[in-house]
Amino acid sequence: MTGERSSFDVVIIGGAMIGSAVAWWLARDRDFDGSILVIERDPSFEFASTSHTNSCIRMQFGTKINVAISRFGLEFIGSFREFAGEDAPEIHLDDFGYLYLARDEPAADRLRTAQALQARMGAGTKLLSSGQLRAAFPFMRFDDVILGSHNPGEEGCFDGGTMFSEFRRRARKMGVEEARAEATGLRMAGGRVTHVELSDGSSVACGHVVNAAGPRAATVAAMAGIVLPVEPRKRYTFIFEAEDKLPRRLPLTVDPCGIHYRTDGGLYMAGCPPETDGPCDAEDFEMDHAIWEERVWPALAERIPAFERIRLRNSWVGHYAYNTLDQNALLGLHPGCDNLLFANGFSGHGLQQAPAVGRGIAEHIIHGGWRSLDLSPLSVARLVEGAPLTEAAVI
């Protein structure tokens, strides 16, 4: 299964975007000369969250650490060839921006507070009154909106698929090995993971283990006796075309009604959670077809009259790895195990946070702590400390 090797310095459970980012950052670091194994249960990634993502990045978060992570993510996208090599492809960013809408004063106050934070950190987010919104987006109705928040130029959709494939391809060239298997157990001794047990009956000894199992992260954590508040939650995506195209690109608009929508090349994309947003089975990708006709389309037509005449072209279901504690990533070592690192619970932000988190986890393994960017506010230790860091800007 793993060739002749039965021991690795680092074993990464989960080979999608986060796991691949960790492997790539590790392998490229001159201070690391160890062996790396990535364990992936489904190397086709057909049902991975990475494959169902909308592949966006934004500055508009409400916590300082998430804005900092996005600032690096934007830099990484724009300078990918400098990080990966001159032979790497460029990563395209379609910077249509995000547009958050508030219909009442509490929501408007949250936008004002968040915009002030983002501006202090160098982001170009601007607040727009209802009149300014109408002038900027005359094809939209804002009768129920009192304030908007928009950041053109630094937010949008990037080519996450190419970034992911380059992480994997380049990591393999640098010696990272991959195993098509499922982690079924963690063998423990003295507060450490000594072996990762696999579905084919074999096991591998390990120096460090990284839990990058996405929506299945809690299952992996439980193998070490750790309770992780991460669960799979469904998110629906719809691709549609409009009979009457809009005169400009549509920002990713986070509507107070609970749906979001944006430009998608020559088409448009909309998304939403289920009516009852709760945990689902990790194997459950069943689509609720009624939600398009009964909820999404009416809301689109109400906000944008041109969307009264649209045609659904495609739809799918993906899973958030939803952190029920505070909707923020859970990163680093758990106090209960001194060689098991977590990179979980991104609650829909994993793809855009992968560059910073992959680098951070790699540095933690090599140097014993965060180096380039202090990710300690997202430490998994806050589970034990009872110190949530709530991120309100979750779509």
Score class of each variant (00 low, 15 high):
P274V: 02
E294D: 07
G345K: 07
A301W: 05
W292K: 02
L246N: 03
G345D: 09
A221Y: 10
H334W: 13
V230R: 05
P232Q: 04
E231H: 08
R235H: 08
C257Y: 05
H260R: 06
L300C: 08
N323T: 12
P232L: 03
L333P: 00
G318W: 02
F285C: 12
P355I: 01
E293H: 05
P229C: 12
G345W: 07
L351A: 14
S315E: 14
E243N: 01
R309F: 10
D264M: 12
G225M: 10
F238G: 02
G278R: 08
I226Q: 01
A290V: 05
N323H: 13
F342Q: 08
S315Y: 14
F285I: 14
P247N: 01
Y261E: 07
G278W: 12
P273Y: 00
P247S: 00
A270G: 12
W297F: 08
D338E: 14
I239E: 10
I226C: 07
P305F: 05
N314P: 01
A329S: 13
L333R: 11
L267Y: 04
K245Q: 15
P229Q: 11
R262M: 12
T276A: 14
L340A: 08
I310D: 04
A299F: 05
E275C: 00
Q352K: 14
L330N: 06
G225L: 09
Y236G: 05
I226G: 00
L228C: 14
R295G: 00
K234N: 05
I259Y: 08
P279H: 10
E302W: 00
Y261D: 06
A242P: 00
L252F: 15
L331V: 07
W316G: 02
V227P: 01
Y268H: 09
L333A: 09
E286V: 15
M223A: 13
D264N: 14
A242G: 06
A299N: 08
L312C: 11
H319Q: 15
Y268W: 06
P229G: 10
L341R: 07
A242T: 04
R295K: 13
T276P: 00
E241F: 00
V227M: 11
P298E: 08
E283M: 09
P355E: 01
G271H: 05
V254G: 03
E308A: 09
L330V: 09
R248W: 07
L340N: 06
